[in-house]
Simulated scan of single mutants.
Amino acid sequence: MRFIKFVIIAIIVLSILGYGVYFFGTKIASEKLMGALSSELENSGEMEIIKQTIESDPELKALIEDAASADESKLPFTTKEEATRLIVKKVGITRLQDIQSKVQQGKITKDEILQEIEEKLTEEEITAMKVIVYKELYNH
């Protein structure tokens, strides 16, 4: 009887610890990823290139500008860190790296990326992503 209690308590404690490691681990990883990505984009001047690319593509521009009128109080998240955490959770780091590799090699189209994101995220999550991108690009 004592052994069963010990095993049950050990399982409960390990479950709680596992969840804590997962939750805080993804939070720390997403914050580091977002910080590194943001500073790299700003320092290399790529943010300006991204902004020009969006401005020159009417479809992308319309997609991002929808975010200007979104009601932020109804969004599931509002920070870059939360967005990164959601993307890492729903898409996965391996798949994100695969997409990045295909983009650099020119093996994937904008429509294929959008389709994959639409399959993984809800409409509200996509809207929240648009709002964050809009704020980042236009410093709002």
Rank of each mutant, 00 (worst) to 15 (best):
S39M: 12
E81L: 07
T109A: 00
T53W: 12
D57C: 04
T127V: 11
E123G: 03
Q104I: 08
E123Y: 09
D71H: 03
L137M: 12
A68Y: 14
F24N: 11
G20C: 04
V103Q: 11
P76S: 00
V13I: 12
K110W: 00
I49L: 15
E125N: 07
E48A: 11
E48D: 10
R85K: 15
I4C: 10
G92V: 02
E42M: 11
D57F: 02
A10V: 04
Q52A: 09
K107Q: 14
I9S: 15
G18M: 09
I108K: 11
H140N: 15
A36H: 14
D66N: 13
E123I: 10
E48V: 08
L37C: 04
L33E: 08
Q104D: 06
G25A: 01
M47F: 12
V131S: 02
L14H: 04
R85E: 12
A10T: 03
V7S: 07
A70I: 05
E118S: 11
I113Y: 08
E119W: 06
M129H: 09
F6H: 11
L63F: 10
A36S: 15
R85L: 12
L41Q: 04
I4Y: 14
V103P: 01
L137Y: 02
D98A: 13
K27P: 00
T109R: 07
L137T: 02
E81N: 12
K135T: 00
I49M: 15
N43M: 12
P58T: 05
